[in-house]
Amino acid sequence: MYNFEFEKPSTIADAVAALGAEDAQALGGGQTLIPTLKQRLAAPSALVSLSGIAEMQGVCIEDDGSVAIGGATTHATVAREAAASYPALAALAGQIGDPAVRNRGTIGGSVANNDPAACYPAGVLGSGATVVTNTRQIAADDFFQGMFTTALDEGEIITQIRFPVPQAASYQKFLQPASRFALVGVYLARFADGVRVAVTGASEDGVFRWSEAEEALTKEFRADALMGLKVNPMNMIGDLHGSKDYRAHLVSVMTKRAVQACS
């Protein structure tokens, strides 16, 4: 690692100020960032830890019934504290990494990183959540802009993510056997006004909504409604762990299983 200054502010305002320094970078749980730094693939001047900011911690239920999760909340906390209010999201959080990683990694860190194989982007996009930052609110549909790319500006911090709670939801993850990220992960959420299907792990462009499946399932919420539907393999990732065709196939299978889990 290149060396850097370390700061651990206790308020969002202080964190924003610290991130104003040139080449300063926010540190969530560090579960992806620290390995990246070890490879010397980044050289921040300072890391601003968000783990000491009390107002960015925890899971709570808003007046409108949505579940609001502080940006610095760990996966383990979400798995535990959202289990009653939003079980599918809690289950997703409980499948990220491994127990020790879940004790450090945070929802804000994961969503801001937007790894194309990460679980949370599927949960956020599939839920139609709102990403709240220190300056604005960003709809999930506008937030994810391709692998490792988001709508966040330099120095902008995800302070909270608000999830409308669907009638039913399920996350179906097929493991990449080495990293245990998603080879394909499908987050399906059924709302009164329609179904959302978000897919991670599969596409070169990162998390995406499978609109054909959404339309079909909105019309008729049965696994059979997916018959004959398939994402275009050409847009899928093909690598050591699975071909483009295989990933496209898995998208269908995982979506079907998500429907079955919700039925």
Partner: peptide, 20 residues
């Protein structure tokens, strides 16, 4: 893996200063 405030964490993936 070590325990930090009672929780298992990967100590090679956590800054020492975070454990202050």
């Amino acid at each position: 893996v070590v325990h930090v405030d009672g929780q298992a964490v990967k100590s090679c993936n956590m800054l020492a200063l975070e454990a202050d």
